[in-house]
């Protein structure tokens, strides 16, 4: 399971992940982390049996936790199955099945690379909408 952690500025300097690992003994894989002055956004992978325990441990520490169950939304009307999303995805979320693009939804880490790479603007993320240069955002 993938969890997205939103870390508030006042706790962003604390060793949150290591303390959760020690507490839960869960094997945690950090898929993506971006931390700046105002917030931290971290995506972790954790096995399904430890997922609830890890989630609660983070929440007790003041971290907002979101389950990434269906992170990439595809507009089926816009998608022409070209494949421009396939090779640029860092986690291999997209693949061809008889030349139709299919997405393995458990793999996405919400990086947004596919959103800007899709020539048909058929993809968007549930949680955030990356800004196109000098253009409107991909709205819901």
């Amino acid at each position: 399971m993938k969890l997205m952690l939103h870390v508030a500025p006042k706790i962003v300097r604390q060793p949150l992940i290591s303390s959760v690992i020690i507490e839960t003994s869960a094997l945690i894989n950090i898929e993506r982390a971006s931390i700046d002055a105002v917030s931290g956004e971290i995506v972790i992978e954790v096995s399904p049996d430890k997922c609830q325990e890890v989630r609660e441990a983070f929440e007790r520490r003041g971290v907002q936790v979101l389950m990434l169950e269906m992170p990439v939304i595809r507009d089926e009307e816009e998608c022409v199955h070209c494949g421009a999303c396939v090779s640029i995805c860092p986690t291999g979320t997209f693949r061809f099945e008889d030349w139709a693009v299919v997405a393995d939804s458990g793999k996405c880490i919400q990086c947004g690379a596919c959103v800007v790479a899709c020539p048909h603007r058929a993809l968007r993320l549930i949680l955030k909408q990356p800004q196109m240069d000098g253009a409107t955002t991909i709205g819901p």
């Binding site: 640029i88 061809f96 030349w99």
Partner: peptide
């Protein structure tokens, strides 16, 4: 095939044209 070898390393390939629609 989805992979080509460049300098001894497998590099992912993908099309920009749609073979699905060509078909």
């Amino acid at each position: 095939s989805g992979l080509v070898e460049i300098d001894g390393r497998d590099v992912k390939t993908s099309p920009l044209s749609s073979y699905h629609h060509a078909r």
